[in-house]
Design a protein around this nucleic acid. Structure first.
Length: 588
RNA sequence: CGGGGUGUAGCUUAGCCUGGUAGAGCGCCUGGUUUGGGACCAGGAGGUCGCAGGUUCGAAUCCUGUCGCCCCGACCA
C-alpha cells in the first residue's frame, strides 16, 4: 500500500506544449515520465511501476517459451561492429561512446559505441560457447536499454533515442528447429500482448537491415502509428506496407500484342509522368514506364515501374545489395545517356549498359501494352513499347507500393489500410550471422553446420505508450488490469477523519490479500481534485470513502471503465471489494 | 539532412508586427472562508525574456549567428 501524500505522482492540469498526441500528453499529465532531452525520458515512479509490470510479464512469457535470460554490455568496442556484417548501415544510427577527452584522445573513428541491438555480441559469444548439437537449440534474451540515434525521435516514448527493449536470439541446429523457435516466439509474443491488455496483431513484415528470410511485426492499431498495415479481414492477410503485395497481376497474364514498331517522338521539356499525361501527349500514367536509377553497393542498377506506381524502396532489399541509394543526376547521365525524365530501358537505347548491375522490373509493367517510355535522349520518348519484345529486363519482381483497394493476394477481395504502432518484431535470420561469425556446431555424424538463427524484440516503452494510446478517454488513462501501476485507488475524501483513514487501511489490507496493489489518496485536497486525478491516472478500481458516506454507512466502488458507482454498505465493503478484484483478475 | 514553426516563472501563455518600467492564468508559500467532480478572498515568493553578437540614447520586440525543442518530409526524376 502506498499513501499518495508520501509517494510522488506529479500530475498536470495542462499538457506541455511539446506533446501532440493523446498518449504523449497523458504520459506527461499523469506523471509517468518527464523529458530530459529529445528522445530521452525519465521514468517517474508511476511510469516505472508500469514498466516493471510489462517487463515481468514479458520475462514470464519468454521463460515459458524456453528462453534463457542473460545480460550483455551496452557499451561495445567499436570493432565488434566494424567487423560485423552491417557496419556501413548501423554506424549511422549508433552513438559513439568515446572519451569526451580534450581533443587529443578523441579519435576520428569511434573506439566504443552504444549498442542499438545485440546480434554482433551474442553470435560470437554463442560461437565460442556452443559447439555441439547437444547444446542446441538455445534462445537467449535480455530486457535492457538500447541506444539508437533515430533520425527523428518523436511522440514521447514512441520513438526514443534511449529505450528499453526485450531482445532475444535463437540458435538452432536445423531450419526446421529454427521455424519452431520462431513460432514459439510468435506464440509467446501473442501471449504477452494479450496479458498486458494490448490489442496487437501480427503482420508480415520486411526484414530490412536485419536480413533473413521472413518476419512478422506486432502492430497495435492506432491512427498515430508510423506504419501502414495492409490487410483483408476476410482472408486474414495482414502485412506491413513495405512488404505488402497484391494480386494485381494475374498469374496467367498473356503479353499484349504490339500494335506497331517502337517509335521515337519529341517531348521537349517533358520530364515528369504528370507532364506526359497532359495534352498534347495524353499518355495515361499506367501506360508509361517509369525508370529509376539506384546505386547498390556502388554500382548502378535500374528499376522499372508503371508510371502510376510508386517504388516501395524496402522491397529493393530482395535484390541482395548491402547499401542502396538513389543515384544522383551526375551518376545517371554517363550510364543512361540522358538526364532523369527521359530514361528508359528499351533494348539498345542505354548508353553504357555494361555499367549496370541489373535491370529489375516490377511485374505490374506486364499490364502495359504499347506503352511509352523515355528514349535515353533528352527531350525524346518512345511509344509502342512492349515489355516482352522491347525491354531489356534482368529480372521481374515485386517492387511497387500496394494501394488500398487492390485485390488481396489470398482472397482477391479488396485490401484495406490502417495505421499501426510497431511494438514487436520477430525475424527468422537463417545463417547470415552464423556464417559471418563462423558460428558452427558439430552434428552426430561429426559434420559441422552453421547455426540457424532468429532474433526477436519487443519495445517495452513503446508498448507502454501504445497501451495508453489504445486505452484512454477524455478524462485520462484507462489501464488494463495487468499493466496498471496500481489496481485499486482508495480515495479518502476526508483524510482528517481518523475513522476514514482507519477504514481505508483496513480495506487496503483486504485488497492486498486478494492480490491487488493499492494506492490510497490521503491528500488534503478537495474531492473534485481527487476525482480528476483518479480518472487521469486511470487505476482500474476506485473505492471512495467520504465523511458523508460514512454517516450513511456506505463506501463507493467504481470501475475506471464504467460510469456506474456501487454504494456498498460498510458490512459488505470488504467482501464486495474482494469480489471485484477477483472478477477483474479473472478477466485480465 | 531539407522545409516549416517555436523558445518569456515549475506548467499554459499575452506582449514582438509598430523598440520606451515584463503581464496574466494554473501551480507554489502565508492567513482566512470553504469542502462529493480541477473552490473563493487577501497577501507573498518566483523571470539573466534560450545563448552570443550587432543596430539604437534605449532591445523580449529589429538584424545576424548559434543552440534547444516541436511538426512535416526523406533524393520516387
Amino acid at each position: 500500500m502506498k499513501l499518495w501524500s508520501q509517494y510522488f505522482i506529479p500530475t498536470l492540469k495542462e499538457s506541455p506544449a511539446d506533446a501532440e498526441i493523446a498518449s504523449h500528453k497523458l504520459l506527461m499529465r499523469a506523471g509517468l515520465v518527464r523529458k530530459l532531452g529529445g528522445g530521452l525520458y525519465t521514468y517517474m515512479p508511476m511510469g516505472l511501476r508500469v514498466m516493471q509490470k510489462l517487463t515481468q510479464i514479458c520475462r514470464e512469457e519468454m521463460e515459458r517459451a524456453g528462453a534463457i535470460e542473460l545480460w550483455m554490455p551496452h557499451m561495445h568496442p567499436a570493432d565488434t561492429w566494424r567487423e560485423g556484417p552491417r557496419w556501413p548501415v548501423t554506424r549511422e544510427i549508433m552513438f559513439r561512446a568515446d572519451s569526451a577527452g580534450d581533443g587529443k584522445r578523441a579519435a576520428r573513428e569511434p573506439e566504443y559505441v552504444l549498442g542499438p541491438t545485440h546480434e554482433e555480441v551474442i553470435t560470437p559469444l554463442v560461437k565460442a560457447e556452443i559447439t555441439s548439437y547437444r547444446d542446441l537449440p538455445k534462445n537467449f534474451f535480455q530486457i535492457a536499454t538500447k541506444f539508437r540515434n533515430e533520425i527523428r525521435p518523436r511522440f514521447g516514448l514512441m520513438r526514443a533515442r534511449e529505450f528499453v527493449m526485450m531482445d532475444s536470439y535463437s540458435f538452432d541446429a536445423t531450419d526446421e528447429g529454427a521455424r519452431k523457435s520462431y513460432l514459439a516466439m510468435k506464440t509467446a509474443y501473442e501471449a504477452f500482448f494479450r496479458r498486458i491488455g494490448a490489442r496487437a496483431i501480427a503482420v508480415e513484415a520486411d526484414t530490412g537491415v536485419m536480413g533473413g528470410s521472413f518476419s512478422h511485426e506486432f502492430m497495435v492499431p492506432a491512427e498515430i502509428g508510423d506504419d501502414d498495415v495492409i490487410y483483408n479481414d476476410e482472408s486474414g492477410y495482414a502485412a506491413n506496407r513495405e512488404k505488402a503485395t497484391s494480386a494485381l497481376v494475374p498469374k496467367d497474364l498473356a503479353d499484349a500484342a504490339p500494335v506497331g514498331a517502337v517509335e521515337e517522338f519529341a517531348t521537349p521539356g517533358i520530364v515528369t509522368i504528370a507532364a506526359l499525361e497532359a495534352a498534347p501527349y495524353s499518355v495515361a500514367a499506367d501506360k508509361q514506364f517509369k525508370t529509376l536509377v539506384y546505386i547498390g553497393d556502388g554500382k548502378p542498377f535500374l528499376i522499372v515501374l508503371r508510371g502510376s506506381d510508386e517504388l516501395e524502396e524496402a522491397k529493393l532489399g530482395s535484390l541482395g545489395f548491402g547499401l542502396v541509394r538513389p543515384a544522383t543526376p551526375e551518376e545517371i547521365e554517363p550510364v543512361m545517356g540522358a538526364k532523369p525524365g527521359s530514361l528508359g530501358t528499351v533494348k539498345g537505347t542505354i548508353k553504357n549498359p555494361g555499367a549496370l548491375a541489373g535491370i529489375f522490373a516490377d511485374q505490374a509493367i506486364r499490364l502495359i501494352g504499347n506503352g511509352t517510355t523515355g528514349a535515353n535522349k533528352d527531350g525524346f520518348h518512345l511509344r509502342n513499347v512492349n515489355v516482352a519484345r522491347d525491354l531489356a529486363v534482368t529480372k521481374f519482381g515485386d517492387f511497387r507500393r500496394v494501394r488500398p483497394g487492390e485485390p488481396c493476394p489470398l482472397s482477391g477481395k479488396p485490401l484495406q489500410v490502417r495505421r499501426g504502432i510497431e511494438v514487436g518484431h520477430i525475424f527468422k535470420l537463417g545463417t547470415k550471422y552464423s556464417e559471418k561469425y563462423n558460428a558452427v556446431y558439430t552434428d552426430d555424424q561429426k559434420q559441422t553446420h552453421f547455426m540457424e538463427m532468429g532474433c526477436y524484440g519487443i519495445g517495452i516503452g513503446r508498448t507502454l505508450q501504445a497501451i495508453i494510446e489504445q486505452s484512454h478517454d477524455a478524462d485520462g488513462i484507462v489501464w488494463p488490469w495487468n499493466s496498471a501501476p496500481f489496481h485499486v485507488l482508495i480515495c479518502v475524501l476526508d483524510p482528517q477523519l481518523p475513522e476514514a483513514m482507519d477504514l481505508a487501511k483496513q480495506l487496503a489490507t483486504v485488497a492486498e490479500q486478494a492480490g491487488a496493489e493499492v494506492l490510497v489518496d490521503d491528500r488534503a485536497e478537495r474531492p473534485g481534485v481527487k476525482f480528476k486525478d483518479a480518472d487521469l491516472i486511470g487505476i482500474p478500481l476506485r473505492l471512495t470513502i467520504g465523511g458523508k458516506g460514512l454517516k450513511e454507512g456506505i463506501v463507493e466502488l467504481k470501475a475506471r471503465t464504467s460510469k456506474d458507482v456501487a454504494k456498498l454498505p460498510l458490512a459488505e465493503a470488504a467482501a464486495q471489494l474482494g469480489a471485484a478484484i477477483a472478477a477483474a483478475q479473472a478477466k485480465a
